[in-house]
Design a binder for these strands. Structure first.
Lengths: 150, 150
DNA sequence: CAGCAGATGTAGCCGAGGCTACATTTCTCG
DNA sequence: CGAGAAATGTAGCCTCGGCTACATCTGCTG
């Protein structure tokens, strides 16, 4: 990328590509957190089932996450989150919940919302997330009970 | 993927991964359309600048799009869209505009909206898109002029 | 307490999408 | 017209995230 001209538009695409890289980490870390919470422990096989990939893929990705100090594990042992991993998981989870609630709030049906939130969340920047939260707060003000129109 | 159990959650991740594949095609086809519209023609170098990648990457991707009958080109010649490509570009463009307008409508600042829309649009399903359009229609009703609060 | 089933790990392949370095073509301009 | 610069193409390498097939380990159970 020596001195090549890079349009202003380009930075957005570059940003999107960069997001892709962190997506995997976030998704896995979030899944590990969920599994630990729900099953007491997180095994490779569980992750494979949740992510819909083969156990081999899980193993390779977990190895990288371990190098990145996000998870901790030993051969044939369960996977746990490091403090860094916990923090990332918490952030991802938060964003996920906001996006999901937001989609529901604008009337997207449950299943479609879940599907789209999964893909969208990684591209929702802080500003956008803040706007979604503001919007949600507004909705809650107007409709305090659990009676949101669908 | 023989008989492995795949959780209900998994289908969402699989869906997200599948989306990734079409992303490139959509982005490039959209970019080709823009360049043709603005510059009169689309050259490899322009695409490289717009997408923020090297010309080599562009060439390989364009070759695939040509096999997919989305673009037409010859060595050392400009790139044009096939009818199929035009249709895809139009759809992508439409979705892009809706998402961008929607983000603006909920108060996301211009630049952040552009950035996030780029990544989000490919994960916005039809149901969600429809909800965004409905929302936009509502906003336009309440604020008919160009006076949207930012 | 031995074996077997199931979970995990290893080897090696694939395609997508990045890259650099080098080769070739166009095309402009002196 | 014919050079040289700019654009395009080719070769070959990388990482990531898929996969299958095969090897190894664990832990339960007969």
């Amino acid at each position: 990328m020596t001195g090549r001209k890079r349009s202003r538009v380009a930075v957005r695409f570059v940003k999107t590509r960069d997001d892709h890289r962190s997506e995997t980490a976030e998704d896995y870390v979030e899944a590990v957190a969920d599994l630990v919470r729900l099953h007491g422990e997180c095994r490779v096989r569980d992750l494979a089932a949740v992510m819909g990939v083969s156990h081999v893929t899980v193993i390779r990705i977990i190895a990288r996450l371990q190098e990145a100090a996000l998870v901790e594990t030993a051969p044939y042992r369960p996977i746990t989150l490091t403090p860094r991993g916990e923090r990332l998981a918490a952030r991802a989870r938060h964003r996920h919940e906001i996006v999901l609630a937001f989609l529901a709030a604008i009337g997207v049906p449950e299943e479609a919302a879940r599907r789209d939130a999964e893909g969208m969340e990684h591209h929702v920047g802080d500003r956008t997330l803040a706007c979604m939260e503001t919007f949600l707060a507004g909705v809650r003000d107007r409709v305090p009970a659990k009676e949101r129109d669908v």
